[in-house]
Design a protein around this nucleic acid. Structure first.
Length: 435
RNA sequence: GCCCUGGUGGUGUAGCGGCUAUCAUUCGGGACUGUCACUCCCGAGACUCGGGUUCAAAUCCCGACCAGGGCGCCA
């Protein structure tokens, strides 16, 4: 490794010490007899100061004539200096150019000139050089870290189910076909059927950080064709209430830890997180319609909430002091076949809403073979194509339930991003397959 | 898939029948010893594509392509 310190690892008390720093040339300011080169690394910025009389001619000339965004490693002496941005600066002795950046740049990494999201995504590697953009992905990494920590502390086993499957997981959603030798196969739209099958193994509690592929031609700030989900399935539950208890504690755990230990990154994004303590409010579907009606939105019973209605409900709940709340007891007819039905045409399915948008969907599942077959038929699906799944229900299947949480949606709502694409390094949507 | 809006230097913009096409940033050259969006001087760089209307089109009309937003579906 090239020996160096991050900008954040140096401080004024190291005055007089010789150090090496490496990074991208962020800015160069020449003032005649003195020049400043600002280097950017992962953690921040470091100012290289060059009074003409204190550095060699070669170093002065070399560093001040670099093209912006070139990568260099600079060796020099730390000087405590109140006038410098971090309270210290580095007087260079020697430097090495590791990579010269071409000009002009396709995007301004200093953020002086704002770029469209499309331009940014086309040049994502430069876009990510902006610390506030990189912060999104540092936070994303932490969300997954805390999620794993939470699940492990509760005895969940992390699993991986196939991404290449032979038939539709749930019907409904469109699948991407792939050529699989002499057979036709598809990219998995979710781990749903596999994680349920694992409930017949005695693993009891599993989770998976899964990629979902959706071939739907949606085109919004809220949909992607390749997404990441935090998926989980839990056996021996009494009802969907046991699943919701896990979710609210998971979300609280993530938000609480982020707000406590990740203040710096959140500040870069101008975001404050207010962890909402469990239990989160439960609003039955029927009650949600009533609340909407009281606010002027009349929706037909038995249909999913429209986007507008969902947002309105979000505003109403916000006024009551809640960002997070469950909508429960959905009509069975708008939920997938594996959902546990209840009396009166209802079901044990729920969604978790975050600032007026759905981020989690879950339910208690059917664990009785006969009922499951009946529901598959009722949805007009072919029982034969679910044979391998159904088999797991004939030889001892405990009651169970689970959920899937859209990671990008969670990040988007958490950080108040305007477009879900901002929460993915290299998003895949209806039109974008590159980079 | 449907509806609305828009495509001007590398990037972001102004202009909306006749301009040498605006401004910022950027890039090249020069001056400057404490900058931190340094400042100042000189220079470089653009009207998405194809038809049409007109004496004249970046500007109006049609189409294509691309993009942004909304809806539906979902996580």
């Amino acid at each position: 490794m090239i020996e160096r310190l991050y900008s954040s690892e140096i401080n004024p008390s190291m005055h007089g010490r010789e150090v090496s720093v490496a990074g991208w040339v962020h800015e160069i300011r020449k003032l005649g007899g003195i020049a400043f080169v600002v280097l950017r690394d992962r953690e921040g910025f470091v100012q290289i100061t060059m009074p003409k009389k204190e550095v060699s001619r070669d170093v002065f000339k070399g560093l001040t004539s670099l093209s912006k965004e070139s990568v260099v490693v600079v060796k020099g002496v730390v000087r405590a200096e109140p006038k410098a941005p971090n309270g210290y600066e580095i007087i260079p002795k020697e430097y090495r150019l590791l990579s010269r950046a071409e000009q002009p740049l396709p995007l301004d990494p200093t953020g002086k000139v704002k770029a469209n999201l499309d331009t940014r995504l086309d040049n994502r590697f430069i876009d990510l050089r902006k610390h506030e953009i990189m912060a999104i992905f540092k936070i994303r990494s932490e969300v997954l870290h805390f999620a794993r920590e939470f699940f492990r502390s509760r005895g969940f086993i992390e699993v991986h189910t196939p991404r290449i499957i032979s038939t539709s997981s749930e019907g409904g959603a469109e699948l991407f076909p792939v050529a699989y030798f002499e057979k036709e196969a598809f990219l998995a739209q979710s781990p749903q059927l596999y994680k349920q099958m694992l409930m017949a193994t005695g693993m009891d509690k599993v989770f998976e950080i899964a990629t979902y592929f959706r071939a739907e031609e949606h085109d919004t700030v809220w949909h992607l064709n390749e997404i990441t989900a935090i998926d989980s399935e839990i056996a021996f539950i009494e009802s969907e209430e046991d699943v919701m208890e896990v979710i609210e504690n998971l979300v609280y755990y993530i938000m609480k830890n982020l707000s406590e230990s990740y203040e710096k990154e959140l500040k870069k994004l101008g975001v404050e997180i207010y962890p909402q303590k469990p239990p989160f409010p439960r609003i039955e579907y029927k009650r949600a319609l009533e609340i909407l009606e009281e606010n002027g939105y009349i929706l037909p019973y038995g249909e999913d909430l429209t986007t507008e209605a969902e947002k309105k409900l979000g505003e109403v709940m916000k006024d009551e002091g809640y960002d997070l709340y469950f909508i429960t007891k959905y009509p069975i007819k708008i939920k997938p076949f594996y959902t546990m039905p209840e009396e009166n045409g209802l079901s044990r399915a729920f969604d978790l809403e975050f600032k007026g948008r759905e981020i989690v969907s879950g339910s208690q599942r059917i664990h009785e073979y006969e009922l499951l077959v009946k529901m598959i038929k009722a949805k007009g699906l072919r029982v034969e194509s679910f044979e391998n799944y159904l088999k797991a229900f004939r030889y001892g299947m405990p009651p169970h339930g689970g959920f899937g949480m859209g990671l990008e949606r969670f990040i988007m709502q958490l950080l108040n991003l305007k477009n879900i694409r901002e929460a993915v390094l290299f998003p895949r949507d209806r039109k974008r397959l590159e980079p």
